[in-house]
Design a protein around this nucleic acid. Structure first.
Lengths: 149, 149
DNA sequence: GACTCATGTAATAAATTAAGTTACATGAAA
DNA sequence: TTTCATGTAACTTAATTTATTACATGAGTC
């Protein structure tokens, strides 16, 4: 399966957005991801509807954050994206009457459901500010290593 | 994303195999999954290499279990399949130098890695005999409900 | 008001991957 | 030697993500 990178992508975009004060255009954001502006708009559409970001058309327009990073969890972003599929493994259902198939899928489903609960709890507990803090730490360390020479 | 159903499929096949005493051909197994015999052989190849099943060519040949279900965990099957990807979400890496991208991916990776550990622990703790037991329970219940009339 | 900049979105193409199919080689039993 | 069955490579099909193109809409500037 070709993997879905929307979650990683949109987080990257949002954190860049939060680093700036004024609006950023889709075109500029696309440069960060090395992709097309339309891809940015498409992903941001859900976040706008969820009230996480604001878009403005015309001159001087672009994207800005609607809330501080501390008020946005990874879970908020995930939901705003439309809660994309988390797991790559699916259940085969070509013989729904087959009790073996039912038992197999029930077992798998129980395992995956618990992993999903854990994952979503992690998402809820992680704010974008936490990720931004990690970024700032990395930036400090980076500056420290590149300055000393 | 098109989901990978190999784990679900192969478990279905194995449990049918375990229900029988004599060898079953790929063609017959394919009927259970409503698929092609080659698909069965392809998936079973890994299980054979892992020593979970035995294949015999020629007349009266086919597939048989190499071990009792109690001796096979879901994790064994998962590994024998080649440990296929569990998660559908990937990390975008178009700007490896970008510290924001690094921080985002590190955060996601930490969450997904923990979910993966949990999932694999579940896999280790679940034997195929457990799933077979669930199947037998379902069969009993099924017979009970279809007999009473 | 005309022009430019920017988003909004539909439609399409390209790339990737899982599953299905065909073809043929190999080996074992009748 | 014929038949049955696996082993495997090659190719096709279908689903899905991402990228691209095209054009409509709206907001600010001249």
């Amino acid at each position: 399966m070709k993997s879905d990178n929307k979650l990683s992508s949109i987080l990257h975009v949002i954190l860049h957005l939060a680093e700036h004060q004024q609006a950023i255009t889709s075109e500029t954001l696309a440069l960060y991801l090395k992709t097309n502006p339309v891809v940015i708009r498409r992903m941001m559409a859900g976040l706008r509807q969820a009230g996480l970001v604001i878009s403005v058309k015309g001159h001087g327009g672009g994207w800005t954050m609607a809330k501080p990073l501390t008020a946005i969890s990874l879970h908020d972003v995930y939901q705003a994206l439309g809660a994309p599929r988390l797991f790559a493994q699916g259940y085969r259902q070509d013989a729904p009457q087959c009790l073996i198939e039912q038992a197999v899928n029930a077992s798998l489903d129980s395992a995956f459901a618990e992993a999903e609960r854990l994952l979503l709890q992690k998402f809820i507990g992680l704010s974008l500010a936490d990720i931004a803090a990690d970024f700032k730490l990395r930036r400090q360390q980076h500056q420290a290593t590149t300055t000393q020479e």
